[in-house]
Nucleic acid binder design. Sequence first.
DNA 1: TTTTGAGTTGTTCGA
DNA 2: GTCGAACAACTCAAA
Length: 486
Amino acid sequence: MAAFARPVVLWFRQDLRLADNPALAAAVATGAPVVPVYIWGPAEEGAWPPGQASQWFLHHALESLGADLSARGSRLVIRKGDAQCVLNELVNECGARKVFFNRRYEPSALLQEQAVIDGLVKIGVESITSNSALIFEPNDVATREGRPFKVFTPFYRACLMLPEPLPTVRAPKAIPFPDTPLRSDSVAGLDLLPRIKWDTGLQKTWMPGEAGALRLLKTFINDGLVNYRVDRDRPDRDGVSKLSPYLHFGCIGPRQIWRAVRSHVDATGSGALVESADIYLKELIWREFAYHLLFHFPHSVHKPLRPEFERFPKSAAAAEFVKSWQEGLTGYPIVDAGMRELWHTGWMHNRVRMIVASFLVKDLLAPWTDGARWFWDTLVDADLASNTLGWQWSAGCGSDAAPYFRIFNPILQGQKFDPDGVYVRKWIPELAAVPDRWIHSPFAAPPLVLQSAGVTLGQNYPAPLVDHALARNHALDAFAMIKGKK
DNA sequence: TTTTGAGTTGTTCGA
DNA sequence: GTCGAACAACTCAAA
């Protein structure tokens, strides 16, 4: 029978995995041959096509997915272009009457999705969509008045009132592929890899794909989770899961993580583990909250949620400052270490993300949107929802943002969270010989100390761009100004 | 409708 | 060195 059944199309998007993939499961459950397709269409991502680092991750995640499909008797069809055109073309080629896919929530993706569904209806093809990317979709959570949440804590409480995430769908054992010959581009043909070889650091750091995600999750749950409460703030330790790029591309789903953590806690839960697990799972709910906000307030990707922040002043030197910040040449070691970690690995520890963001916006008085854009272009985990929420929070212009007076002191933050300077020395080797006492403030060290450490400020390590104490006062003035106090 | 309590991640200053 | 208060006022969400 199956040989004569019309095939169905499975459109892979940000869900590059076989397990916990409801659209794939639904397609396989039809009993018909399945045509899995990935469509590379950066032009449809609006102002936010994947950056170089994200493209690198995507390339390898696609190769991994292709291999996983082959192991199940299938293969990945790859095409370039406009999703609506490609899908129309593909259903005509293979005779499919059904297209399965998982939903996305970014503004441009929502438009794309509607165009795809409308286009397919016109030629008599049905679209069947599922949720794979979120534990709770944007409309699943609402205030009692039916409105979206703007504050995290009530959102979080509302989520906890909802039923626990369902057990995940297993990867299909076999995925039948039709006999029809179907043209496919190669992953390499998408031209996602850098022309100039700068990706060595990425290669050393990441193993993109479903297997890499599951391996990371397992290691984290067994080794990292119990100390997560403390170690999540320590960039000098290996204390976080680093699952963010895998979540972004859907190499793993949030429900898989939720279930795996919960099961581990239920099986072995000591007090410390329970506490750490709750904090970790709360981070997953932060991700949900970011999608909730992006969906309901799509303008937040480029406009502050608090409109008075459009008047927030900009330093006359902002453009130069941004450049130094990008290059890791601000003269504040913890900031520079973070920016260099980002450049080399496509990732930055979350504690350090907050520090560099506060520094850009409040010490350098540069627009938060410049920071958001740089992160977008350089992060392997660049995610419109999380990036937007993070920057609005740091800049203080989100609806539930850091209070204006919360200005990170880059020296204190370094001393507190990288007390032995291990993180700074790793990314700024020119400071390696600076003693612990001065590692986070080399500009304050006695000249003889710097001399014997081989550091000459302004030559092999920059003098600070701004004086933090002064910069802090300027920022406080700026906040008073936009509130109309000055 | 009005009221009430609360809001991720910090720093500084003075006692 | 440690500790508590101040740093504002506003908006959100629920009662």
